[in-house]
Simulated scan of single mutants.
Amino acid sequence: MIEHPAPADPARRVALITGAAQGIGEAIAQRLIDDGDMVVLLDIAPTVKDTAVRIGAADAVRVDVTDIPALQAAVHEVAEHFGRLDILVNCAGTCGRESFEELSPATWQRDLDTNLAAMAFACQAAVFPHMKEQGSGRLINIASVSGKVGGIGPVDPDGAGGRSGAGYASAKAGAINLTRWIARQAGVWGITANTVAPGPIASPMAAGAEYGVSQSPVPRMGEPAEVAAAVAYLAGPGSSYTTGICLHVDGGYVLA
């Protein structure tokens, strides 16, 4: 999978980011690269290799995160090639926007598989054996304030789609509690696990959606770089005693 790997550098942390070909995932990758980390991108998109070259990532792996054996194999390969895995950021996601009336089993399952199951099993592969054996690690899972408020966007009284859907909101709520569960288990091994919950962010996933941000305390769309800054804090030395939290990056959307 790793075709043109950069040489391992024991003085730099190794980070793996899923869903990193564009949008929030790309911004997170760029921020960690700028902070001096060796970053590997993972995405289903064929453009992930181009993104890696453009932003100076160590390498990229094209994997469908819903293929759990392939996903876990990629995590193990990255850790084994570089000799360690310090940071895992789970950012891969899908967002159905069907109304509840039109919600299909296929959309429901896709959103749970991509946003929750893949996250759980990527964390499992990172911890066992790599982070546990090295006695350190940062797990950072990208959820959404959708998981706090039941979907982002105005509610249509006719029940039409548009706001983030039921499967997405349910998966993101699960991601927050999954991360808390892992945090309680893994702290004794020197591993922290935290969630970042973006609100309305100007990213490809949000294109064309109406979020009603004019009612938020900070009345604008957020930027991917603002989510990346939160991830950088949770990946950095200043958060060594921080685990199990859900950090909102939403301009106060949850408050509104």
Rank of each mutant, 00 (worst) to 15 (best):
Q109V: 00
Q109C: 02
Q109D: 14
Q109S: 14
R110L: 13
R110E: 09
D111C: 06
D111E: 12
L112P: 04
D113V: 00
D113Q: 09
D113Y: 01
D113C: 00
D113I: 00
T114R: 08
T114C: 14
T114I: 04
L116D: 05
L116E: 04
A117S: 09
A117M: 09
A118S: 15
A118L: 02
A120T: 08
A120F: 15
F121T: 00
F121R: 00
A122K: 01
A122W: 08
Q124K: 14
A125P: 06
P129A: 10
P129T: 11
P129H: 11
H130D: 04
K132F: 01
E133Q: 13
E133F: 00
Q134G: 04
Q134S: 07
G135W: 11
S136C: 12
S136K: 15
S136Q: 15
G137S: 07
G137W: 10
G137C: 08
G137M: 06
R138Y: 10
I140F: 04
I140P: 04
I140S: 06
N141M: 11
N141Q: 12
N141P: 08
A143T: 10
S144K: 12
S144N: 12
V145M: 11
V145D: 11
S146M: 01
G147P: 02
K148P: 00
G151W: 05
G151S: 05
G151T: 07
G153N: 13
G153Q: 12
G153T: 10
P154R: 02
P154C: 05
P154D: 04
V155K: 07
D156H: 13
P157C: 09
P157L: 12
D158M: 13
D158P: 01
D158T: 09
G159F: 05
G159L: 10
A160Y: 08
G162M: 07
S164K: 01
G165W: 04
G165F: 07
A166N: 08
G167L: 10
Y168E: 06
A169P: 01
A171F: 06
K172M: 07
K172R: 03
K172S: 03
A173D: 01
A173I: 05
A175N: 02
I176Q: 09
I176M: 15
I176D: 02
N177G: 00
N177H: 13
L178D: 03
T179F: 05
R180G: 13
W181N: 15
I182D: 02
I182M: 15
A183R: 03
A183Q: 03
R184D: 06
Q185N: 08
Q185H: 10
A186E: 14
A186P: 00
A186L: 13
G187C: 12
V188K: 14
W189N: 13
W189Y: 15
W189D: 15
G190S: 15
